[in-house]
């Protein structure tokens, strides 16, 4: 079988708060194939955010294994994780984490430059991403001058700047209104079609509906994992079941 983009073996996270052990993730085996788009859903407190943070090396695991493209990653130290992220992983946080004293354009170009892209290539990629997200006219602004929704879109552009092997995202549409969500949905759909692997924690069914597969967590464990099958009735550019006609 092909090497998966990412996989975990019996992954466990136990937080120690006030002396009491609180298990957040309880033995997760997850396999993400290359090019696959996996949505992770579940109620708050089910371990979704902890899981995605561990996959990006932003939180340490208590036990179990994390593998990125066939290489063991959970045993890496912090600086080795930083290098792995720079080379292979894009991360979108729930609360953007943009660099405040840099322009939007520089925020987006930075990861590509750190990853070794030429300045010309980094600029072209930035222009493409900002244009797709309707942010071209904000390129020279500082993050603090943007709305929450705009900052969230910049964070997505930054995560994709490097064309990472895997895009990890934690509730990337949490701050967006419906129009901005539409731009984000379009871009995600497009990079996914281009082969981008995506693992995304989301509560937003519009985003989850784009995924190839949905993994549902409850109480730190996977309770459902499977493809979203097409509905029997496809909207054929005509009437969906949006409204019901009564006689």
């Amino acid at each position: 079988m092909n090497t998966p983009a990412m996989h975990t073996v019996n992954l466990v996270k136990i937080y120690q708060t006030g002396g009491l052990p609180v298990p957040a993730v309880r033995g997760i085996d997850l396999r993400v194939e290359r090019g696959e788009f996996v949505a992770i859903m579940g109620p708050s407190g089910s371990g979704k955010s902890t899981l995605i943070h561990m996959l990006g090396g932003l939180d340490t695991r208590t036990s179990g294994e994390i593998w990125v493209e066939g290489k063991r990653a959970d045993t890496l130290n912090e600086s080795a994780w930083a290098i792995l992220r720079r080379q292979k992983i894009g991360f979108v946080f729930q609360f953007f984490n943009l660099v405040d004293n840099m322009t939007v354009a520089d925020n987006v170009e930075l990861p590509a430059l750190l990853g070794g892209a030429s300045p010309k290539h980094a600029r072209e990629r930035r222009e493409y991403l900002l244009c797709e997200l309707n942010l071209t006219d904000k390129a020279d602004a500082a993050p603090a001058q943007l709305s929450g929704g705009e900052q969230q879109r910049v964070a997505l552009a930054r995560a994709l700047a490097n064309q990472p092997q895997v895009l990890l995202a934690d509730e990337p549409t949490g701050n967006l209104d419906s129009r901005n969500t539409r731009d984000v949905l379009r871009l995600l759909g497009e990079v996914h079609r281009q082969g981008q692997t995506i693992v995304m924690v989301t509560h937003d069914a519009r985003v989850a509906g784009l995924a190839d597969r949905v993994v549902t967590l409850l109480d730190g464990q996977i309770i459902d994992d499977g493809a979203i099958a097409p509905t029997r009735r496809r909207p054929k550019g005509g009437a969906g079941d949006v409204v019901e006609l009564r006689g």
């Binding site: 519009r206 509906g209 784009l210 949905v214 549902t216 499977g226 099958a229 509905t231 949006v242």
Partner: peptide, 18 residues
């Protein structure tokens, strides 16, 4: 679980319709 997947498939159709 089955119902959730079904709703997500409907959501996908709605996104397409939009």
């Amino acid at each position: 679980n089955r119902q959730r997947r079904h709703y997500l498939a409907i959501m996908r159709d709605l996104v397409e319709l939009a």
